[in-house]
Design a binder for these strands. Structure first.
Length: 208
DNA sequence: CTGTCGATCTACT
DNA sequence: GTAGATCGACAGG
């Protein structure tokens, strides 16, 4: 089966190395498009292709959690690049980020949408829905589908453990779309949302 | 299809 | 005390 083959291929991959993340957060965001997010949830593999991201910088970015300095919640943003930052939003959802820039420079990439690849049945169970198109097309939807909670905050995505990222094994060409970020009240003007164009799994329909 | 609104609670003021 | 990197239900066209 298509799915089986993909699991083997994904499992044979090594996670992207630390250097991948130790760059400018906007560059890292764009580079993450097309990469495969892998979740190992008690022996089960859940995976999806990253199709939409947003960059959140540190001190200069009023929309960033790091804008007002380090707190208990956001401290992982100052940690090694490649670390996972998960936080609770609106009391009921989780959002997944991956830390970028060298250690000590706060920044993170919000993963906003995935194209489901492996473990789709399991994801649908986690979300309790039937329509694949709405499975992982939103930051809090994908965390629920992949069973990502605050327990994973601080996990190192450069290690092959319960959450990591591998290279783009599909290798399909794509165009990158750009827009302003969604759902924020400050820093609205920065064009730091990036997505794979003509992909049905982004969180928002493309405006032509 | 679009827009509006309530849910729900943690982290920070 | 309250805003918030969202979602789902529902109303209306």
């Amino acid at each position: 089966m298509f799915d089986e083959n993909l699991i083997e291929r994904i499992e044979s991959e090594e996670p992207l190395p630390r250097e991948f993340y130790a760059k400018n957060v906007v560059i890292v965001s764009q580079n993450l498009l097309g990469k495969i997010l892998v979740r190992v949830d008690n022996e089960k593999i859940l995976a999806g292709r990253i199709v939409e991201v947003e960059a959140y910088d540190g001190e200069d970015d009023p929309a960033s959690h790091a804008y007002k300095g380090m707190t208990e919640r956001n401290k992982v943003m100052w940690d090694f690049p490649g670390k996972v930052y998960v936080y609770t939003i609106y009391g009921i959802h989780y959002c997944l980020n991956i830390v970028a820039e060298p250690k000590g420079v706060p920044a993170a990439v919000l993963i906003r949408a995935l194209q489901p690849l492996v473990g789709i049945r399991e994801m649908m169970k986690n979300r309790n829905i039937k329509d694949v198109r709405n499975l992982t097309n939103g930051p809090a939807r994908l965390t629920k589908a992949l069973n990502i909670t605050k327990d994973l905050n601080g996990v190192d995505a450069t290690l092959k453990s319960e959450l990591y990222v591998v290279r783009d094994i599909l290798g399909k060409k794509f165009e990158i779309g750009v827009s302003t970020r969604i759902g924020i009240t400050r820093g609205k003007e920065k064009p730091w949302r990036f997505y794979i164009r003509n992909n049905p799994f982004t969180s928002k329909k493309e405006v032509r």
